[in-house]
Design a protein around this nucleic acid. Sequence first.
DNA 1: CTTGAAATAT
DNA 2: CATATTTCAA
Length: 287
Amino acid sequence: MREEVEPNWFPRWEDELPSPEELMPLSQSLITPDLALAFDILTPNPSSEPPRPPPPDFDSPDLSAPPESVSTGYAGEEPARTLKRPRLVWTPQLHKRFVDAVAHLGIKNAVPKTIMQLMSVDGLTRENVASHLQKYRLYLKRMQGLSSSAAGPPMSAADAATEHLFSSNPIPHPFLCRDGSGQETYMQFLAPPLLHQHQQMAAASVQNQQYYHQRQIRHLGSTSDYGLFARGAAQPLGLHRIGVSSIGMMQPPTMASLPNSYGDDMDSGSGRGGRRVLTLFPTGSED
DNA sequence: CTTGAAATAT
DNA sequence: CATATTTCAA
């Protein structure tokens, strides 16, 4: 499990380079990040929370195993587990999956529905994928258009995105903070004043970095708990190796696999002083 | 207040 | 399904 991320993406893999990630049965397990969310009962913030149109139609598969019962001890059980779809946060991992799926599908079959199906990420709706796909395409265009003086052969789009994703992944520029004037100013290498709000990560992989559920009790604590789980987590894994030709079948190619197939323990913007923490597609104007 | 990112509407 | 617009959060 040491051959996950390889810097050897540049060489022409165009044809069908099955990277380790590729070979691995795509499976993403997203689980509840902050347990502290259970505490959001204190300030529901009527001004910005109340009108939450609950998805009336949505298969509620198995909303199981709350990681742990936080010692809430509140009589009224909060139904915020299944209903309530706050907002999808495309964490780098998810994006990675997305890109992988697109890469495997090819531009032809890279349509929202197929992508969504291939990703097999529960809770992910076609809408989400579509939106993201749109942005992804835009990002691609932008990059290609701006590559006037791009050195060397243009790398594959998917790679580019992945690369950028990786770039903004794990603490890219250490202590560079943006000042109010837009000036970059070096901060002391010790500035964890502002913990970001929420971040998705495999709870199972959480070991040392548990500082995350430190959330400032400032404004609404709404965005955090999503019900994203691996869709086929409980399915008898019988079919992996879903090829491009397989997706044309009648039944959704639910490629089930064991969770945590990835070694993705990369954190995105953990904690930084100013803003600019989770910048997925960099517009090129990144500091 | 600005900007970026997802949701929603066309 | 693709694109444009609006909404929401940081």
